[in-house]
Design a protein around this nucleic acid. Structure first.
Lengths: 118, 118
DNA sequence: ATTATATTTAACCAAATGGTTGACAATAGC
DNA sequence: GCTATTGTCAACCATTTGGTTAAATATAAT
């Protein structure tokens, strides 16, 4: 379980920093589903899938409902809000400085291209 | 350097999944600054700081400008856009299902609280 | 009851992560 | 030319990560 806000962000961003887990989230956004079905698209053992799900659960992004031998996973997007808010905090920064930065970097790229003979 | 979109997301989310690096980004959002100044708040070797900066650079979040022995780091928020878009994709999901999910989870919490005697 | 299905767990492995120390490189200032 | 400062690099270390296999658990189905 995650304690403070920073650890929550750690957990959420870390959970999202893996393509398998992002794909799982995308799948769960369609509808809740069981482990085997969730595992189907991936060339990976069920044991590995189990671990990925546990990471998602640890970040609070997935809620598991056990009925007999069938585990149903459901997406809970609320922990993403912390992440999106953190990121959104920088939209202001973009608006303020993006133009100047873009110009500078484009100039840099142009110089690099010239150096590369492009 | 990052190749495709998925690897870009991997790199950005991974870069953000560490409190030191998030703090660095927050600092750089105020103004560009040198390595030593950037390192000041952290109880950590310059070598460790150097590695963190390299992770941020690898994700494209920081651009370095070298003048003599002084390296100036500048925030580039553009790679965050990929992350924020990925996350934003689920806002729709929230709006659609948040109510039902919240209700279900609150009921669950209430049941747990009752079980805990709260 | 036996068998098949769904899933986790434990033990292991290689690679990546986050940190250290110590040596090095380059530049600024005296 | 020294010396102090800024920063990286290489080697090392413990821990975490992402995967495997093999065994265990639990339930469903026949």
């Amino acid at each position: 379980m995650v304690n403070n806000k920073s650890e929550q962000l750690d957990a959420v961003f870390h959970a999202l920093a893996d393509p398998t887990r992002r794909a799982m989230i995308a799948r769960l956004a369609q509808a809740p589903c069981g482990i085997t079905e969730l595992a189907a698209p991936f060339d990976m053992t069920l044991a590995a899938i189990s671990k990925h799900i546990k990471v998602l659960e640890g970040a609070g992004l997935v809620v598991r409902n056990i009925q007999g031998r069938n585990h149903t996973c459901q997406l809970d997007t609320r922990p993403m809000l912390g992440g999106i808010e953190w990121l959104r905090h920088y939209e202001q920064f973009w608006n303020q400085r993006l133009d100047a930065l873009t110009a500078a970097l484009l100039a840099e790229d142009a110089a690099a291209d010239q150096a590369n003979g492009n």
